[in-house]
């Protein structure tokens, strides 16, 4: 009898130890995926939030959290916010863009976008081809190649070789500068904090940063706005169609 009890005790102890070992971030990441696949959205979300609180950060983590919010229902704003965050970190995250479009269909506000200049669009599309770090690495490699070509210019045996080396080095250094610019552009886009998503179900936008200000218009949960400045508990926001107004900081969250 005693032996059986001892065995039980050892087993229980072993189980708890095994459990304790199981809580590595990776196992929790997998546990969250399991919870999600079984429809336990809240549990999955809790696990992802714990991982985020531990200092993990990736476009995929934000994307997964956004999916949980979407599935939970009733938190469309949070869902859109996290999709936007995922896209901010990785603008070429196709799944996030797809789900964001689906979530945005459910928002109430329709704001007409001012059409963008074509060149800006093209440049942005090129920029979004790589991440900021990839651009930075590319710029360094191009710069190094340009310098090598400069050496060729100086020590080339024949005139033709020297001419080619000169042209190449100029092109490579120029490309390196472009790549560096794209890298900084991408970095700025990834670190920008001048956009926000409305989190309150209904939020009235005032003409001045006080509750006594005139109501200019009403925004609903999930609408994306630009943030121009922050003043105390108020943010000055701008809509995609150019309208501006003041909103309380607690009613919107910076992407």
């Amino acid at each position: 009898m005693k032996r059986i009890l001892l065995l039980c005790a050892v087993l229980i102890l072993g189980w708890t130890v095994a459990n304790a070992q199981e809580t590595t971030p990776l196992s929790r990441w997998e546990a969250a995926a399991n919870a999600y696949s079984e429809g336990e959205w809240q549990q999955a979300l809790d696990l992802y939030q714990a991982l985020e609180a531990e200092g993990f950060q990736s476009a995929e983590l934000d994307y997964n959290m956004a999916n949980c919010y979407y599935k939970l229902g009733g938190s469309l704003g949070a869902s859109i916010l996290h999709y936007e965050r995922a896209l901010k970190q990785n603008p070429r995250f196709e799944d996030a863009a797809f789900n964001l479009a689906l979530a945005q269909q459910q928002t109430l506000d329709r704001i007409d976008q001012i059409p963008e200049f074509v060149l800006v669009k093209v440049l942005r599309n090129i920029r979004q081809f790589f991440s900021a770090d990839a651009w930075a690495r590319a710029s360094l490699v191009l710069f190094a190649l340009g310098l090598v070509c400069l050496l060729g210019l100086r020590y080339g045996r024949t005139l033709r070789l020297r001419k080619t080396a000169f042209v190449l080095s100029v092109i490579l250094v120029l490309f390196a500068i472009f790549a560096g610019c794209f890298g900084f552009g991408a970095k700025q886009a990834a670190l920008r904090d001048d956009q926000a998503v409305v989190m309150a179900t209904v939020s009235s936008v005032k003409s001045s940063p006080s509750t006594s200000g005139n109501n200019l218009f009403v925004l609903h949960e999930g609408t994306k706005v630009g943030v121009l400045e922050t003043l105390g508990k108020w943010m000055r926001i701008e809509l995609a169609d150019g309208r501006q107004g003041w909103i309380q900081t607690q009613e919107a969250e910076i992407i």
């Binding site: 971030p25 990776l26 990441w29 997998e30 995926a33 999600y36 999955a44 991982l51 200092g55 993990f56 950060q57 990736s58 476009a59 995929e60 983590l61 994307y63 997964n64 999916n67 949980c68 799944d95 900021a132 770090d133 651009w135 930075a136 690495r137 890298g183 900084f184 991408a186 970095k187 990834a190 670190l191």
Partner: peptide, 17 residues
């Protein structure tokens, strides 16, 4: 959702800049 394990990364500073 994304289930790839390499998607779980700690936050890190950008190399660019």
């Amino acid at each position: 959702i994304v289930t790839r394990t390499d998607a779980l990364r700690p936050a890190r500073a950008l190399f660019c800049g």
